[in-house]
Amino acid sequence: MKKDVKKYLLTAVAAVLLLAFPLLVDNLYIQHSFFMIFLFATIGLGWNLIGGYGAQLSLGHAAFFAVGAYTAVLFVIYQSLTPLIGGLVGVVIAVAVAGLIGYPCFRLRGPYFTLATIAAGEIVRTLLLHFQDFTGGANGIPLPYKGDNFLFLQFSSKAPYYYLALAMFVVVFFLVRYLEHAKMGRYLAAIREDQDAAESLGVQTHKVKMFALLISAAITAACGVLYAFSVSFIDPDSVAGLNLSIEIAVVVIVGGIGTLWGPVIGSVVVIFLTEMTNLYLGDIRSGASLVLYGLLLILVISIRPQGLSSFFRRN
């Protein structure tokens, strides 16, 4: 009983703090950081479905992020259509792309799957660069300034974006938690343990993995939409780049792949660490924060390879 009360109390305090946060901390930069923390935690939760529970390491998720972002932005630029609809279309397209990629890719195991996802991500990025008349190419697309306009997800302050990210995070968190315990989660766990054994027991591994990938893609694309409108500028390298895909994976891995809180903890740690390093070491030489980032990844993998390997399969 006492443990429960403690837990609910903690939850309540945390909820109040989170909701009141923008009012307590006036600092635009910190608001932006927390926005990014919740955004990456959300993407991470989505990535985890296929990368953690599904044990298929994807380094191409930026493709979905970019599809979401670009679709919503292009609809605004060409059709003045609100991203509330444009973004939805983006999510649908991202899911379609995921289906296209997943169907052949799931036949691949281990590193081959990973390499294929890299290829997919790079193809999307290259195409975005090439069709510049339509997408603005390397120039990127800046969003015209509309002041405060909810329909176009434009606000003159950071707080609304923070709340949207927080809301998305909460929704996705409970969604993933639900899936974890539902049939889907158990099938994924079985596949992760031993895909062949699961098959022989009647689990339709392809369907299950595909489902996980589709949801993962949808979540990532939705985050892409929110991101695009919060920074008012997107270009292929920043939303479809391999670095972004890697960052997503690193966030989850550092935090604990295949666990519910992993992406959350990972997001807090990675973003917090990166920003702190930039803040204090940024003057010495840039790249310092990325050195730390690489080191972090090396350390996590080296010191806990046992923990990680129980979620992967040797193929």
Partner: peptide, 26 residues
Amino acid sequence: VVGKPDEVAILLTLGLSIFLQNVILV
């Protein structure tokens, strides 16, 4: 990480790659 599943090596060497690039940068 020899003998561990392939993904472990991928992630480790990925971290190494980021590390090396930025150490040289610094």
